[in-house]
Computed example of a mutant assay.
Amino acid sequence: MNRVQFEASQVMISETQSNDIYMTVLMRMFSTRPNRNGYAVSEAFMDNIVANAAKYTCLP
C-alpha cells in the first residue's frame, strides 16, 4: 500500500464520482508568499503559467 502525506494550510480533496484508477486533486500550486524554504514565485511567473496553461497541463 502506498502512503501519501500532505502538509499544507489548506487542502481540499473533492471526489465527484468514485474511481479506483485515479484521483483528482485541486490545490493551490503557487503563491507570492515565501514557503518554508524561503522561496516564492512572482506574479509575472504565475501570469505566464495561466497564459500558457495548455503547455503545462499534465506536467509533474
Rank of each mutant, 00 (worst) to 15 (best):
K55I: 09
R3S: 08
S18Q: 04
M12K: 06
P34S: 01
T32H: 00
E7R: 10
S31K: 02
I21L: 12
E43G: 00
T16P: 06
V25P: 04
S31P: 01
T57K: 14
S18A: 07
E43K: 13
N48K: 15
V50P: 00
M29V: 09
L59Y: 05
A54G: 05
I49Y: 07
N35C: 05
D20Y: 06
A44N: 14
M46K: 14
S14E: 14
Q5H: 14
K55T: 15
T24W: 03
L26K: 15
C58W: 11
Q10S: 06
Y56G: 06
R28F: 07
M46T: 06
F45N: 10
M27Q: 12
T57M: 09
F30M: 10
S14C: 06
S42K: 05
E15S: 08
K55L: 14
M23F: 02
V25G: 01
N48T: 15
V4P: 00
M12W: 02
R33C: 07
E7Y: 11
N37F: 04
R33N: 14
L26V: 15
T16R: 14
N37G: 05
V11A: 08
M1T: 06
M23D: 04
I49T: 04
Q17C: 02
S18Y: 06
P34T: 04
I21K: 09
T24G: 08
Q17W: 00
Y22V: 07
F45H: 13
L26Q: 11
F30H: 03
T57A: 12
P34K: 01
F45G: 03
A53I: 07
F6S: 01
M1C: 04
M23I: 11
V25C: 03
F6H: 03
E43A: 11
D20K: 12
K55N: 10
N35F: 07
R28Y: 09
T32V: 02
P60A: 12
S42R: 08
T32Y: 00
Y56H: 13
L26C: 12
Y39M: 04
A40N: 10
M27H: 12
I13P: 02
M12E: 09
N35P: 05
L59R: 13
Q17K: 12
E7I: 11
E7C: 02
